[in-house]
Write a protein that binds this DNA or RNA. Structure first.
Lengths: 135, 135
DNA sequence: CGGGATCCTCCAAGATACTG
DNA sequence: CAGTATCTTGGAGGATCCCG
């Protein structure tokens, strides 16, 4: 996509545009999904235990949180530390890589916060003009 | 989530945290999905026709592009202009609101671009340490 | 050319229950 | 408390065909 057009290697004639596009798509599929963002947000001010995250995020199933965290661990965005006590205690913490995501994500969150009214109003206008919410 | 914690209204005791969380989730569900980002990216340097977008994005089905564009129009991120010629010609263009999304999205894209190697390496390490890619 | 409708598939994700 | 396994289903999304 063009958002990264300026990053094309000079010698590659843009033929790899698709490559970059698809790579972006892949990464955005990962970091762009709801629970990932929630999880990174939850961990943004320090390590946290599994159930604490579940409560903090709210509305996420046990299973989905587990899968999301596995994925993030795999991508190197967070670390998982299990203390073999009874009962078990597992702490999750962002890595440097994960923390570096906070800044761009915060900007996006800011955008969302600031433009929520505009979007809602636009939606109302659209729904009024056309028949009903969707169709 | 905490990414927007600093934006809590002073008088609301954080009870609306869930509200904000869910609102964020909703918006991120919209603007965070793959095709939306692709579409905004495609339109980031000027208006474009439907089929041109399809070619530029690549890998998107006719139907999904239509639905995505409808959604974006509804949220006020772009405008749709149909010229009743034969054959028909329809142009899509970002609104000011839509254009204001480019900046934060570019930052995210930059992050993705810069950290792609790190993520791939982390994934390889993870897969080597544990058995196989997923399980 | 662009959009809608229809059909069909398939997988993401919730619920539940068991283990260490 | 944390994780895994199994089952089930809703709906996202592709393919296809027809219309203006």
């Amino acid at each position: 996509m063009d958002l990264i057009a300026q990053k094309e290697l000079p010698e590659s004639e843009g033929a790899d545009d698709h490559e970059l596009c698809r790579a972006m798509g892949h990464i955005l599929d990962r970091i762009g999904d709801k629970w990932t963002i929630m999880a990174v947000g939850a961990l943004s001010d320090g390590p946290m235990r599994f159930n604490a995250m579940m409560r903090k995020i709210g509305g996420v199933s046990h299973r989905m949180l587990t899968l999301t965290l596995r994925g993030l661990e795999r991508e190197g965005l967070l670390t998982r530390t299990a203390y073999p006590t009874i009962p078990p205690k597992v702490e999750y913490e962002l890595t440097d890589l994960g923390r570096s995501l906070i800044a761009p994500l915060t900007l996006l969150a800011d955008w969302a916060f600031e433009n929520r009214p505009a979007m809602e109003q636009a939606r109302l206008a659209y729904d009024k003009e056309h028949g009903g919410p969707a169709k």
